[in-house]
């Protein structure tokens, strides 16, 4: 019927199709434009510069030397080398992450288990348990430095907790004023923030299909059997997600600097604070190259730990998923 040959028609059609798919792709990418532009300017360019600084003696205006010497300083464990300070900071940060994460995940889980029941006013109780999470970090820092304040010289000027301890006939504790107790105290104040985890666990419990529990009940499984064979395994994906994100966040903890500074004898001198101080506080111009080198070491640690977690993620139960 048509005068054109089949092949040329096909060619025109495929060209048209290619053009259309190109246009479609371009439309998709146009939506991504903010992300692409922002990432180029505020992430990729700084990454390249950060690497360059880490491998140089950048002083804010110029570079006169290039090499791995910054990393050399970090691994210099002699008496006045940076090694002890940097790895001391990393150690403190790890202790904080491990302590904070275990405490908050385990206790928020227990709290959620307790609050996962239908009793009158349960919603109000849940909200009240969640509210301390809403106190801004710097404000809660003021609260805890005051409540945990210690004055060994003049016991009458002790903070509230020490006053209560003394009223109970106990010795006042050092809390934030001694290197050995300041990190445990900081982790302890994290107790008031477990409400956020609780809300999330409750949401997770709500997503477990009730049929599983009914089937288990029919088979005569008691509360604890149901807990350990249904509730806990079904919460593992969210547990995994939270372990990963709270580890990444915890390794970068910086907010404590506002209230506790670097702590007594560097007991709260977390690595992010060390990086900030090395670059912007100690000297002028700061030791930008060294600070960037520390940041890269932190990045390698975070990436390696995340990789290990994903590789060892066999214990996660992805059952019942609809995706």
């Amino acid at each position: 019927m048509k005068s054109k040959t089949l092949s040329s028609e096909n060619a025109a059609l495929s060209r048209k199709r290619a053009l259309r798919s190109l246009k479609k792709n371009l439309v998709s990418y146009s939506f991504l434009l903010p992300f692409i532009v922002g990432t180029l300017i505020f992430t990729l360019y700084p990454i390249v510069m950060s690497l360059l600084y880490a491998l140089s003696n950048f002083n804010g205006t110029r570079i006169t030397q290039i090499g791995f010497f910054n990393f050399g300083y970090i691994f210099d464990f002699s008496e006045f080398g940076w090694g002890r300070r940097v790895f001391g900071s990393l150690g403190v940060t790890f202790l904080y992450v491990i302590g904070n994460m275990t405490l908050s995940l385990v206790l928020s889980y227990l709290l959620a288990l307790f609050l996962h029941r239908n009793i009158p006013a349960i919603r109000a109780i849940r909200v009240l348990c969640y509210l301390p999470c809403l106190i801004p970090g710097i404000a809660s820092g003021v609260i805890w430095t005051d409540a945990f304040s210690t004055n060994l010289a003049d016991p009458s000027m002790n903070g509230l907790f020490n006053t209560w301890l003394m009223k109970l006939g106990l010795e006042p504790m050092t809390f934030f004023t001694a290197a050995s107790t300041s990190l445990p105290t900081l982790i302890f104040t994290g107790l008031w923030g477990i409400g956020g985890g609780m809300i999330m666990w409750l949401a997770a419990f709500g997503n477990i299909s009730p049929e599983l529990y009914e089937a288990a009940k029919m088979d005569g499984a008691g509360y604890f059997r149901r807990l350990f064979f249904i509730t806990v395994p079904m919460s593992t994906p969210i547990l995994f997600y939270n372990v990963v994100t709270s580890m990444i966040g915890g390794l970068q903890v910086f907010g404590t600097y506002a209230n506790y500074g670097v702590g007594v004898e560097d007991s709260l001198h977390f690595i992010a604070i060390r990086i900030y101080i090395t670059a912007f506080q100690n000297t002028f111009p700061g030791n930008y190259g060294l600070a960037c080198a520390m940041a890269w070491i932190l990045f390698v640690i975070i990436a390696a730990l995340t990789l290990v977690m994903f590789k060892t993620g066999g214990w996660i139960q992805y059952g019942e998923g609809d995706e």
């Binding site: 998709s28 990418y29 700084p46 510069m49 950060s50 990444i248 390794l251 900030y276 990045f299």
Partner: peptide, 30 residues
């Protein structure tokens, strides 16, 4: 469904791993 969707997604998610500390100093100069 666009070309490079998987790559863009993986690239986007990988930025989560990047500590703010790495970007802090060059961003200051930027």
């Amino acid at each position: 469904n666009f070309k490079g969707k998987k790559f863009m997604f993986a690239f986007m998610m990988s930025t989560v791993l990047l500590p703010t500390a790495v970007l802090m100093i060059p961003q200051y100069f930027l």
